[in-house]
Design a protein around this nucleic acid. Structure first.
Lengths: 210, 210
DNA sequence: CAAAGGTTTATCCAAATGGTTAATACAAAG
DNA sequence: CTTTGTATTAACCATTTGGATAAACCTTTG
C-alpha cells in the first residue's frame, strides 16, 4: 500500500519537495514553509494531505523502508552462497540508491538520531529480520567451512557495507574533495560495482586451492 | 590558540555538553536549553561564554578541524610510500576517532548540510590541501609505476576511506544491527585496523612478482 | 444549473526557542 | 571592610514555526 500510485499530483509534489528539504536540512532544520515553497503550493496543503510534519516525515521514511525491503528481502531469502547474494546486493543496492540517493543519508542522519522511534518499526515491519539473521548465520557457516576467510561475521558485514554504502553517504564530501559532479560520481559508482566485488573476493573469500 | 587549556570549568562543561547535544540532535535539533541542562548551568551562561548558538557550534567545529589537521598533516607531508602513509593513517585515525567519536558524525551530518559555509574554512585553514593533492598525485604515480593496482586515484581514496571511516559513522546502526555495545564496538575497531590493512594490501596493492 | 464534496488560499494563533537584561552572588584586590 | 570586576541567575522579549480555521474556489454529478 501507499506506493506512488494513487496519489494526485499535489501529493506527489509535496512528497518530492519534502524528501529534498528533509535530506538537505534534516528533520529539525526542515521548515514546512520551505517544503511548501519547494512544492509551489500553499503551506496549509501540507497539513491537508499529511496532517503534520511528523506524519509527513514518517511517510517518507516508510517509502524508504519499503524500497529497501523490496531490494533486500528477495536476495537474502533466496538460495545461494553468501558471495552470490553479496554480488546481487551490490548490483541491486547500487541501482536502487542511484535512483534514490536520499535513502542512505536518511538512514544515517535521522534514523540514528531517533534510533528508539524507528528501531521498532524496522524490526517489526520487516520479518526480514529473519532473513537477515539467517544471512548472518550463513556467513558464519561459510567462514567455518573455509569458503570465506575467518574474519568474523561482524567484520564481514561491516566491510561489505562500508565498501558499498559509504560512497553514497559521503557523496557530498567526496564530490567536493575530488572535484566531481553528481553525474560523474554516479557513473563512477557504476564502475565501482566490479571493484567492490574484486576487493571482497580477494580479501574476504578463501582462495580455492584445488 | 583556543585549545582546551586556558578554559575555566564552566566553559569546558559547556563545550562537552554542546558536543554531546549537537551530535545527538544535529545543529537545528539541538536546543540551547538542552545544552544548558546537560552542562548543569543556566542557559544565559551559554551566551555569556559563547555569545550565540552559531558561535558555540563553530567553536566545536574548529576543535574538530584542529584535531584532524594535527592527525593528517604530519602523515601526508612525510616521506614514504603511499602504503606506509595509509597504514599510519589507519592507526592514527582509529585512535583519534575512538577518543573523539563525534567527529566523523559531525563532518557527515552537519558539514555536508552547510557545505558552502565550512568548505571555505576547511580549504583555507589547512594549507594541508597541498599535502592532500600531493598525496593524490603520489597515488597516481605509484599506480602508474605498478606499485599499486591501477584502479584509479578516486577509487583508491574512496575505498580506503570507506573501510576506515564508515564503521565509525554508522556505529549506531551497526551496534543496533549486530547487538553490540559501545565498548565492544571500539574494541572491534581496534582489531579492524589489521584487517583493513590486509584488505588494502590484497586488493589495491600490486602483488610483487620478483 | 445547483448542490455537494473535495481542494486551495489567506489569515491567524499558541508554543517554542534563541537571545537579552537587570539584578544578585562571589571573589580578588585595595 | 569596601570596592571592583567577573560569574550566575531569573525573568522577560521578539521571532520563528508548526498548526488551525474559515472563507473562497473548483469540479463533479444529479
Amino acid at each position: 500500500m501507499a506506493s506512488t500510485e494513487s496519489l494526485n499530483n499535489t501529493e506527489k509534489d509535496i512528497l518530492e519537495a519534502a524528501k529534498k528539504v528533509f535530506v538537505e536540512k534534516g528533520y529539525s532544520g526542515a521548515r514546512m514553509q520551505a517544503i511548501a515553497d519547494e512544492a509551489n503550493i500553499n503551506k496549509a496543503m501540507l497539513h491537508y494531505y499529511f496532517r503534520s510534519k511528523d506524519a509527513l516525515f514518517d511517510r517518507i521514511v516508510d517509502g524508504a523502508v519499503e524500497i529497501m525491503a523490496r531490494e533486500f528481502t528477495p536476495v537474502l531469502s533466496s538460495e545461494g552462497s553468501v558471495m552470490e547474494k553479496v554480488e546481487m546486493l551490490i548490483d541491486g543496492y547500487t541501482k536502487t540508491i542511484i535512483e534514490n540517493p536520499y535513502i542512505p543519508i536518511f538512514v544515517l542522519n535521522e534514523l540514528s538520531q531517533n534510533a528508539d522511534k524507528y528501531q521498532a518499526r524496522l524490526k517489526s515491519k520487516m520479518e526480514k529480520t529473519q532473513f537477515f539473521s539467517g544471512f548472518l548465520f550463513q556467513i558464519a557457516e561459510e567462514q567455518q567451512k573455509g569458503i570465506l576467510k575467518p574474519v568474523g561475521v561482524d567484520q564481514f558485514i561491516i566491510t561489505v557495507m562500508s565498501l558499498l554504502v559509504f560512497p553514497f553517504v559521503a557523496r557530498p564530501v567526496f564530490e567536493n574533495m575530488l572535484g566531481l559532479e553528481k553525474g560523474q560520481y554516479f557513473e563512477m559508482m557504476e564502475n565501482r560495482k566490479a571493484l567492490i566485488k574484486e576487493i571482497i573476493h580477494s580479501s574476504l573469500v578463501e582462495k580455492k586451492n584445488i
